[in-house]
Nucleic acid binder design. Sequence first.
RNA 1: GCCCGGGUGGCGGAAUUGGUAGACGCAAAGGACUUAAAAUCCUUCGGAGAGAAAUCUCUGUACCGGUUCGAUUCCGGUCCCGGGCACCA
Length: 874
Amino acid sequence: MHKRYGPGEIEPKWASRWEADQLYRTSPADERPKAYILDFFPYPSGDGLSVGHCRNYVPTDVLSRYFRMHNFNVLHPMGWDAFGLPAENAAIKQRTNPAKLIAQFSANYKRQFRLIGISFDWSREINSSHPDYYRWTQWIFLQLYKSWYDLRVQAARPIAALEVELAVKGTAEIPDAEPLTADQWITSSVREKRELLGKFRLAYRAARTVNWDPVDKTVLANEEVRDGRGWRSGALVEKKELPQWFFRITAYADRLLADLETIDWPEHIKLMQRNWIGRSEGAEVQFQTDAGPLTIYTTRPDTLWGATFMVLSPEHPFVTKLTTPGQRKEVEAYVAEAKRKTEIQRETEGLEKTGVFIGAYAVNPVNDEQIPIWVADYVLMEYGSGAIMAVPAHDQRDFEFARRFKLPVRVVIQPVGKDASPAPLDAAHMTEAWPGEGIMVRSGPFDGTSTKVAVAQVTGWLEETGRGKRAVNYKLRDWGISRQRYWGTPIPIVHTAEGEVPVAEEGLPVRLPAVERYETTDSGESPLANIPEFVNVSLPDGTKGFRETDTMGTFACSSWYFLRFADPLNSQAAFDKKEVAYWLPVDMYVGGAEHAVMHLLYARFWTKVLYDLGYVAFVEPFRQLRNQGMILSPDGTEKMSKSKGNVITPDEVVVDWGADSLRAYEMFISDFEQATPWNTNGLAGTHRWLRRVWDLLLSRGERTPGDEKTEQADRNLRRWTHKTIKKASLDIEGFRFNTMISSLMEFTNALYDSQRQPVSDAAFQEACDVLLLLVAPVAPFMAEEIWSLLERPYSIHQQKWPQCDESLAADEMITLVLQVDGKVRGRITMPVDLNKAQAETAALENEAVQRYLDGKPPKKIVYVPGKLVNVVIR
RNA sequence: GCCCGGGUGGCGGAAUUGGUAGACGCAAAGGACUUAAAAUCCUUCGGAGAGAAAUCUCUGUACCGGUUCGAUUCCGGUCCCGGGCACCA
């Protein structure tokens, strides 16, 4: 009798052996096809991994093992997104250094990964808080700093090329640039030149109203603010005016949008990115005022005739310019109040519209009508031009405002045609009782059939007559990266009397100094500002300066780590171009949907910049993306979280059931992308299955062998075998891990059945070998142990994945379903190659079908080849 | 409010182009083995009804309606759950 399945004994043994042999070490670029399978860069925390985290690590590991068995060169690495607030805050609390905590936390993660048999190549481990890594994060920052986006070629170019052009032609040929002649450029001071170039650089510093997190005492990117709260601290975000570093991601808005079409990502993630980028097409139109032309942006130029007032955002420069003396007091009070309000206050006040008339008027360019100008906080300075024409009949917000302040409402009838009538949306508005009323019919030239046509026609007319021009707007804002914290990548910039100067590439890394205290000052300065040795520097030419003391947010680190994995030990460059050309793009990228608009957008942006600058040859970093569903608490009502005390760790599951059972259960629990509750009972099922596989494979020879008369049974078993190979392969590649496990379970059951009805040794041995190889990626420890007990040459994880022989997998017989009026009335077994006539005859001859026919001829017979016959009587 | 997902037995979930609903597993019940228990193995397992029985009938995929020979799948409407966005002109 063979020994009993004991995961506790075999798992640590093989983990050590694999580690000692470096079994999963990845080779450098070679002739083989490659597969780069990557999990999202984790943030190591003191809590360690939960069974929820394992939901993505197990399937990517199975996929990696599967590709290795197909002789792919597989890159499956792991590293630590180590900078950032959690470690820093924990370090402040524990009065220790965050680097020490990261070392401790990541060691624990590594132990857990080893425990559950994840086949990472640890020789490529990277740590984003190590100078060997952040040196290159700083290097990429400098590449952005030294580049600008040339709209004429739709690509980033060296800033040096811009300097040459400015000296020759000024900004004459540069789209959307402020006018500047070559002479003006040449005669500018060094400082002025630097400031001017800052308006072009892809990395630039600018004073902005920023999201200030009063708990973490740092600035947050828009993407890091959820419901007006910091995404980590949960604190209400305040507005603050500070000079900040930004990356000009908005320059890439169009490409970020367009290239979504080329990648295999979940549709909802692409949609979230599209919405976040928020491209809209419309027109800019000028309204005359006493302070000059006031530009507004609208997506509905066809409703210009319905504008009854204008609204400026409180920050708009025209507010001070145009406000009449009589209104000044009221307007100033309103603007001051608006400035003070935080996002969340505005939200809690509801969407009740507020605003003040500024006493001035603007002239509508389409009909020369004078309409009043108001200031209101529902118009945002950051979007469009910060000013709108209000068309209450065709815009819900304008309508609410008009009602509140008793302003006139005027409907624009859709283009005049045979049936002039308001569009459906407008009809709904018209049922309201109007405070003012009027219908203005657009005339003559704008006849058409739809809003869409009218918009296009009116826009064309505005351009021809010089009243306005076509314009595109985005919701996307530039990416703010400044953090007033210690634990991040230092920004490699020195401030001098003559403006900012980048640190020379040879001078990298700018190292984080050792500090004792990590608290930030309430004034918003980084603790680095308190370290004179760090702050005060002399440049090579002797100039004195101060280092930039803000550090980069961690999304900078994670925007290029997938490139570093291709060549993680390189000390001469961020990465070797050849290695990156071989390994990238990532073939399969797996992680949570919460990064849909943060990391996943930033990483795409950096990749495009590096492409423009010639460092990489691809424009999208992640060819395929999959999001795992969340593992919920056992009762299915809440997420697993430390604060709720419902976290289940892989450690406790491994003690009870073994790592292989955990792995199989993680795969089996439900569809990969679906959220599902954890059920500890379910582990009994996968554990029982693995034990059945163990017993089956190790008790070979304890069965009754077949003889020559077992041909049919052999064929049936071989069909099972080859169908299972096919199904398991397709399921793994299609991320259907749950049905992959169930088909292996079915195959196991079939093998037990065939132990009872004799089959030949050859067919049985083949089936057993196939089962073992198919199980290997799922249960690597058990498979290796069985392989070794069967005295096969180490290691099973270097064997070839079995091949499906289609001719053996093909069915001989099929079940033909017999329906009468669409209801199943019988099933018969027929040869697989039956034709329509044979199927119909068989159906009509069937006893059950005849009972329903009752001697009458059928009205119609539907035959679905190889599946069913439906006899229609009604 | 708008935009995405999702709703299938007691539970987790299958059903790959409109074609056998409930694969696989858990739990439960009954039985075998055992001094006993555990483990293991066998059987049953959506609901209702008929039959001595093999079996048969009706019904059933959140709800209402439609298209179709045939709908978990497609269309229209409603409800519930989860996620995202939220004055973006």
